[in-house]
Amino acid sequence: MRIILLSLILVVLTGCASNVVTDYDSGVVFGNYGSWAFAPKGEGQNFTSLDGGRIESAVEQELNRKAMRKVDPEEADLLVAWQIVEEERLERSGVGFGFGFGSGNFGWGLASAPPVREIEEGKLVVELVDTETDRVVWRAASRRYLNENQSSESRRELIDEIVADMFEKYPPGV
């Protein structure tokens, strides 16, 4: 009975864990913002990547749901800046091997560690910048990652889910 109860509590707590982390300037009145635009691209970057197009489409859809108007960057109250932050992590694949012999309190053994490989993943970060002050007023970062092994359809679905989770918490305090 205890095991079932502990399992249920673990499932509930896992379900409550958020896939995004947000932060914001508590001194800002978010109701004053009614228009937005994507921040201009950096110097020498004249194109939008495949994931960039997916991200921009998802952000536009979410901000439309918030009844915000998309305008030219010169007229916008907020600029939307996004980036995919590359992170490396180690992943164990397979199992190690070992053997030993002995009896009582004495014995010998040899073992090998499981193979480890390095995986590069990208976490999405979206920031909203006040055009009057040139300061970030809201930021969201994903706890879910994009990786090279995902198909284009699964990447689009993941980006849509992540961006929807992010803007579910915008404007803050609502």
Rank of each mutant, 00 (worst) to 15 (best):
R2V: 14
I4N: 11
L8E: 05
L10C: 09
L10F: 08
V12P: 08
L13H: 06
T14W: 05
G15D: 02
S18F: 10
D23H: 03
D25G: 04
V29W: 12
N32I: 08
N32V: 13
Y33K: 03
Y33H: 09
S35Y: 05
S35M: 12
F38D: 05
G42P: 10
E43S: 14
G44W: 03
Q45R: 15
Q45T: 10
N46M: 13
F47P: 03
G52H: 05
G52R: 01
G53Y: 01
R54M: 06
E56C: 06
V59Q: 02
E60V: 07
E62F: 01
A67E: 13
M68S: 12
M68H: 08
K70V: 09
V71Q: 12
E74Q: 09
D77M: 05
D77S: 08
I84D: 02
E86T: 06
E87S: 11
E91H: 13
E91R: 14
R92K: 13
S93D: 12
S93M: 15
V95K: 14
G96C: 13
F97R: 10
F99E: 03
F101Y: 14
S103P: 11
S103L: 10
N105S: 14
N105Y: 10
F106Q: 09
F106D: 04
F106K: 05
G107Q: 07
G109Y: 13
L110Q: 10
L110C: 08
A111I: 11
A111F: 11
A113E: 12
P115F: 11
V116M: 04
E118I: 12
I119V: 15
E121D: 10
K123Q: 04
K123W: 00
L124W: 00
V125K: 03
V125F: 00
V125R: 02
E127Q: 12
V129C: 06
V129Y: 01
E132H: 09
T133L: 09
D134S: 09
R135D: 07
A140D: 00
R143D: 04
R143H: 10
R144K: 12
R144H: 12
N147R: 06
N147C: 00
E148P: 04
E148C: 01
Q150E: 05
R156I: 07
E161G: 03
E161S: 09
E161V: 01
V163D: 01
V163L: 00
D165T: 01
F167R: 01
F167E: 00
F167T: 03
E168T: 14
K169Y: 02
Y170T: 04
P172H: 08
G173L: 02
G173F: 06
